[in-house]
Write a protein that binds this DNA or RNA. Structure first.
Lengths: 155, 155
DNA sequence: GTAGGTTCTAGAGTCTGCTCTAGGTCAAGC
DNA sequence: GCTTGACCTAGAGCAGACTCTAGAACCTAC
């Protein structure tokens, strides 16, 4: 998983269908990735057909994580372009990854704030249902019945 | 914030612009919410103009949290419809909220897994940059130079 | 009374990230 | 020889969530 030289290479020829199976991405999506410039290299062909290898799969699995954690396609493309541009821009690649890491950390924090609030609501509903007072949680109709006793702050 | 009766009501008339300011949503979005059936009541009018109150604002703030935590508009609409349908479906509302809470918890877990992997990458880049060996992290060109020594597992 | 700001409706347009279609090539197995 | 299945390209279509446009009404202040 680290960066020692040597590893995966040409022997390891994989068809697009095989790569789809290994990555969980659809064949359509793998072709679309190419059009979008998301691979780390131009995918070679045998005749017309793409020939992937296990390094491509490893990159796609990383892509899955980056996308699942909310990195936009455009930023994955930028990273791929940096790698394609060759050595010398590693600081830039690091900056991009660090920025994303920070983004994700912020999002986790934000989600946990949301969870607090949502769980609070769940709790209120649970307690009112248990107590048999759930009908007091919110009471339409909204027709103006005169006074303003009907509406509660939040349901 | 809980569910005691009484509170916010008719006196509290707010224009759409005011609500936009208080919720951070755009005026456009507030109107779109109405078309999409996301409010807990039909928003009344003074002439043509919508008249909101602070309970609407409270609901919109909750909506912000639900959306920020990934609840699709369609599900917010379902919840709003349940509330509009009046008392008697509180168990359904609770189920909806509970399901969302579980979704969000799963997503937090998933994001933390992603963070692990991303931080691992960041770490590799940092260490290689510090050691001055960053150029070994990835080495194009990809032109077939004969042997397969060029490609590493993942950049 | 007129300029400026806010609001209205209905509907079109945008952006992201896929997903599918049409029409075709190619290799293997019966 | 023919069918089947995997693959190809180019491009259209789609879902979700907004976002904006056009054209008009209305209210307040000068």
């Amino acid at each position: 998983m680290t960066t020692t030289a040597g590893g995966a290479a040409r022997h390891n020829a994989l068809s697009i269908g095989e790569v789809a199976r290994q990555t969980g991405l659809s064949v359509h999506t793998l072709r679309w990735f190419e059009r979008e410039g998301l691979y780390l290299r131009p995918i070679p062909r045998a005749g017309q057909r793409r020939v992937f290898d296990s390094a491509d799969v490893a990159w796609l699995l990383l892509c899955n994580r980056l996308r699942a954690s909310g990195m936009p396609i455009a930023e994955i493309r930028r990273f791929a372009a940096l790698v394609q541009a060759g050595p010398g821009n590693e600081a830039e690649r690091l900056a991009l990854l660090e920025a994303h890491e920070q983004e994700v950390r912020k999002r986790v924090t934000m989600l946990m704030e949301c969870l607090d609030i949502i769980h609070g609501k769940v709790d209120v509903y649970r307690r009112h249902l248990a107590a048999g007072t759930a009908d007091r949680l919110w009471a339409p109709p909204f027709a103006d019945v005169g006074a303003d006793a009907a509406r509660q702050p939040t349901p």
